[in-house]
Design a protein around this nucleic acid. Structure first.
Lengths: 168, 168
DNA sequence: ACTTGATCGTTCGAATTCTAAGCAAGTAAA
DNA sequence: TTTACTTGCTTAGAATTCGAACGATCAAGT
């Protein structure tokens, strides 16, 4: 039900714009570093990092795509590039013949290990240096809650059920 | 001097990931609405919105590009699309013959006015509904400060000065 | 078994994006 | 003024991205 749509006050609007601008600028900055230091795009870094973090270093394509907020076809394309560079391998899953398990190779782990310190350093400089006091605690609290809320909120176009909807 | 690179603690890392994921999901959600309701991409909406906000409803291409964190050539492309749809006009600036002034048309203003309520509504539902108490105040304080810090921090690859650098 | 429907991943084509190169116009120094 | 450099924008071509269509596999229900 959530409140009879009063729009956003100017503080909310400012926070919204700031959020989008900060994430854009941050992504540009780290992307630049990743390319220079490891010839990786931000997306590729995300994929590898997520795999390194996963148990056994492997994930199904779909879970990986959901994790990095990315389309399946886009992931197929990037996985092709990463596989060509020997940073990951792909193999059909034993349990489910449809799905493909993606696994980081040692080369992939090495590359992430090589790039990570500089990456983290940039994030610290840009994002956390200007914070003070309880800023971090509040920020991570709020963002964590918002993230859960978003994950739980299905996209508005939540599948027109069968077919015959959508007049017009 | 900012601290001898201790990396990031796990709370910082979590906040960083949450920030990127939240902005991604939020952008997907509003993008979906904008396309359905006004046949606009998120970038196009940003361009128009920024113009509507500008004095006289016009801006130079470069300032517009910087404002939306976008490449110049990308903006040229999008401006072409928007002009074709009659939402903006382009004209050479009187003062500086090089630069191009972009202006929102009435149609452009109307479209933004049409789309804005739904847009804002989604942002409110996804981003602000799960907030409470002083969350908003802190968030906008922190993000505002971070944004200023980022704008002031030049990209690391701050122009190889003249030409003869970049061995290799 | 047999149909129906959902899920998984890829391929295809179109749209978007970036970088590099180029042109035109401004600025500054000689 | 002439030269050199910078700035503003566009063009050209390659790379990336997405959505729709597809083939294959699984999961139920009958």
């Amino acid at each position: 039900m959530s409140d009879p749509s009063p729009g956003l006050n100017s503080e909310q609007l400012g926070a919204y714009f700031a959020l989008m601008e900060v994430s854009s600028l941050l992504q540009y900055a780290v992307d630049e570093h990743l390319r220079a230091d490891g010839d990786l795009s931000y997306v590729q870094f995300q994929i590898l990092a997520r795999l390194v973090d996963a148990p056994e270093g492997r994930l199904r394509m779909t879970d990986l795509a959901d994790g990095v907020v990315y389309s399946r076809s886009g992931l197929t394309y990037q996985a092709g590039l990463l596989e060509k560079r020997g940073l990951i391998t792909r193999a059909p899953s034993p349990d489910d013949e449809r799905s493909v398990m993606v696994t980081v190779t040692d080369a992939g782990r090495d590359l992430i290990a090589h790039v990570l310190p500089g990456h983290v350093e940039r994030v610290r400089q840009l994002l956390f240096d200007p914070m003070k006091g309880r800023d971090l605690a509040t920020l991570s609290g709020v963002l964590g809650r918002v993230r859960e809320h978003m994950r739980a909120t299905p996209p508005r176009s939540a599948k027109p059920r069968a077919g015959r909807n959508r007049a017009e």
